[in-house]
Computed example of a mutant assay.
Amino acid sequence: MEHNKMIFEKVSALAARKGWITSQLALAWAHNQGNDVVPIPGTTKLQNLQSNIEALSMKLTPQDMAELEAYALSDTVKGGRYDNKVLITTWEQSDTPPLSSWNLS
């Protein structure tokens, strides 16, 4: 956790240098992944919705992208997405029947 916290702090510092909040930087990064990536942020607060909308117009430089990619290398982030102590159901544990067996008529 402490290792990943240091990465988060670096990402937060980049956001602060740009005058953004960390969540805006994350959305701007996602928007820079290509036209086939559509982030769907969720929020229940109007202030956060406005912040998310503002992120659409925020531009990252190639240097910003390189800095963020360096933080996200697979050998840099430690641990899994979910804590093993908490049972969380994801698509990996699902038992969805194959599409070919669905009755779509």
Rank of each mutant, 00 (worst) to 15 (best):
T90L: 02
T90H: 04
T89C: 02
Q93M: 08
D83A: 11
T90A: 02
S74P: 05
G80S: 14
L87K: 11
K78M: 12
V77N: 02
S94F: 08
S74D: 14
D95K: 01
Y82S: 01
S74F: 11
K85I: 05
T89H: 10
Q93Y: 04
Q93I: 05
A72Q: 09
S94I: 06
D75S: 14
E69Y: 07
V86D: 05
S74H: 13
L73K: 15
W91P: 00
D83M: 02
T89Y: 06
D95N: 07
R81Q: 03
I88R: 12
K85S: 14
I88L: 11
E69L: 09
R81G: 04
P97H: 01
L87V: 09
S74I: 12
G79I: 06
K78V: 14
A72V: 10
L87W: 05
V86C: 02
D95L: 01
D95P: 00
Y71A: 02
W91T: 13
E69Q: 15
E92P: 00
V86M: 12
S74R: 15
A70H: 12
T96L: 12
V77L: 15
W91D: 11
T90K: 04
K78L: 10
D95F: 00
Y71D: 02
Y82T: 03
W91A: 12
A70G: 13
D75A: 10
L87I: 08
V77E: 00
V86T: 14
K78E: 13
L87M: 10
G80I: 03
T90R: 04
G79A: 09
G79M: 05
T90W: 01
D75Q: 14
P97N: 03
T96V: 13
L73Q: 15
A70V: 06
T89I: 10
V86W: 05
K85Y: 06
A72K: 06
D75E: 15
S94L: 09
N84C: 04
T76N: 15
D95S: 06
L87E: 08
V77S: 02
P98H: 09
E69I: 08
G80Y: 01
K85C: 04
S94R: 10
P98Q: 09
I88G: 06
T96A: 13
K78F: 07
L87R: 07
S74L: 11
L73V: 09
V77Y: 02
D83Y: 03
V77A: 04
S74K: 15
Y82V: 04
D83F: 01
K85Q: 14
Y82L: 04
V86K: 11
L87P: 00
T96S: 10
S74T: 14
S94D: 13
S94W: 07
S94H: 09
T89A: 09
V77I: 15
S94C: 10
D75I: 02
A70R: 13
Y82C: 01
W91H: 06
D95I: 01
Q93T: 13
G80C: 04
Q93N: 12
G80Q: 08
V86R: 12
P97W: 00
P98S: 11
K85H: 13
Q93H: 10
Q93C: 05
A70L: 07
Y82Q: 03
A72D: 07
G79P: 02
S74W: 06
E92W: 05
W91F: 09
W91M: 06
Y82G: 00
